[in-house]
Design a protein around this nucleic acid. Sequence first.
DNA 1: ATGGCTATCCATGTTTACCAGCTGGTAAA
Length: 581
Amino acid sequence: MKNRAVARVFQEIADLLEIKGENPFKIRAYRKAAHTIENLSTDLKTLMEENKLREVPGIGEAIAKKITELLTTGHLGYYEELRREFPEGTLSLMSIPGIGPKTAIRLAKELGISNIDELEKAIINGRVSGLYRLGDKVAANILRHIRMSRHKDMRIPIGEALPVVEQIVALLRDRPGLQHLVPAGSLRRFKETIGDIDIMGTADKPQDVLQAFVELPLVEEILAKGASKASVITTGGIQVDLRMVEPDCFGSLLQYFTGSKEHNIILRERALRQGLSLSEYGITVLETRKTEKFATEEAFYDRLGLQYVPPELREGRHEIELAEKRAIPRLIETSDIKGDLHVHTNWSDGFDSIEAMAEAAMSRGYAYLAVTDHSAGRGIAHGLSEERLKKQITEIRALNPKLRGLRLLCGVEVDIRSDGTLDLPDDILRELDVVIAGVHSAMAQDSEKMTRRLVLALENPYVHILAHPTCRLLGVREPVDVDLEAVLHTAARTGTALEINATPQRLDLNDLHVMRARELGVKLVIGTDAHSAPQLDTIRFGVGVARRGWCGKSDIFNTKPVDEVLTLFKRKARASQRTVA
DNA sequence: ATGGCTATCCATGTTTACCAGCTGGTAAA
């Protein structure tokens, strides 16, 4: 049994205990243990054999015993008994937002509902809204979430797909005779979700590479393996195709399989007008019927009289027009980023200390890092009260002289309450270098209310950045209902920056929003929202979104030196003082 | 259930918002 499977059992025990209404601290102990086990770098079995289970923080006598039982017998009596106490399927009801343990158990016991389909029927028949303390609004809300979960698309978030591809490429890169190995498709274009993963390669002996590919440890199932192509399903359930091709037409093949379809259609139509026919094998001159081959994409675009088009722009918008005029801008790169303006520490719900985050920022070569922990309104995150924030400011100021080359900025991610007011008074916000405002509650508000709420927050003279403006979580939570156009205009008018939140689950703003923001002259920053030091690396996902939104270095504010950033932020408060005067 | 450590004990995560019924339970973040 793998660590992950053990963790899942404990997570489910916690859910069941929650339904049961057990001691909350006991529930938390199981959740904590599950989390620790999931992130453990050593195999539980090894720890068990060395009698070191108890040394893991969060694993005590009872849980160590349960792990041992699981690992030796493959079963856990306690868990199985617990499951028997509740109707089958009660747990699945809790996956619907709006249904917690109390409601789940009532639906199961009072209506005999044991799965989501039955729940849907019961709501439609009006059986749910008849229950005590469950009215029409609750029922309608649950129904809405059920329908939403049905329509969830099955594409994989790029945050999951990219690491898998990188792992595969890293494992195969050193095969003798391998020349190219490049992911194509929507992954290469850095779309936020990916269908299947396509990797293209060239090698002296393609068969060897294909063989090594299907033998990788992360391969769960081999769907097909031929002379030039293999398809597998990874242990994470993602389909990956590897296509080995002839080196002399690698360029046109890579171009073809990178897409997008829309981009390639426009390209073909344009080529036809020039008497050229495009295919994945090259460019055919219609008059002579001769096909030219291209080893690189650059040569391919060049033959068509076009500037090279970065994959992120190949969406059939206006990139080909601009490539004709050689007017495609230089896009932002991760190395252009000079600092991160949104990170958390263990003062709120972050994992690492301020020092550890600063250390990580220095090793990335950053010039600055803004510490922006939550405010008290986010109770569960152990958000900072005014008092604790003051203490943190003192600590950061004391730390700064000790840091070589890095400027730590004092900041906060202040809650925007349901009415648009902020969770901290202006007096303290005024003291800070960086104030990020963000919505973390009451996300179901209607568009009018939500828009008014965000506009009000942006109008605060001390708010510099609006965090994750639409609050979406890919595959988990839909964006809030908001008039984003109005928000963008307010941001432009007040000189407030909008964030491209780089957390792979968020990517918020998205590429289209970023384009629109650029058009309106809205300042943009990329922030990782890192909750641990390694998460500073997720900046590249934000850079990917910015590139898809046609951003150059100058469009993203945290490519500027620290003084310029601070000057801009201070300018907003000064401007509003003038307005008042 | 864990971990600290005077203990067959005690602390451990908190605030906001919404809805059903007009104060308090439930869920989300």
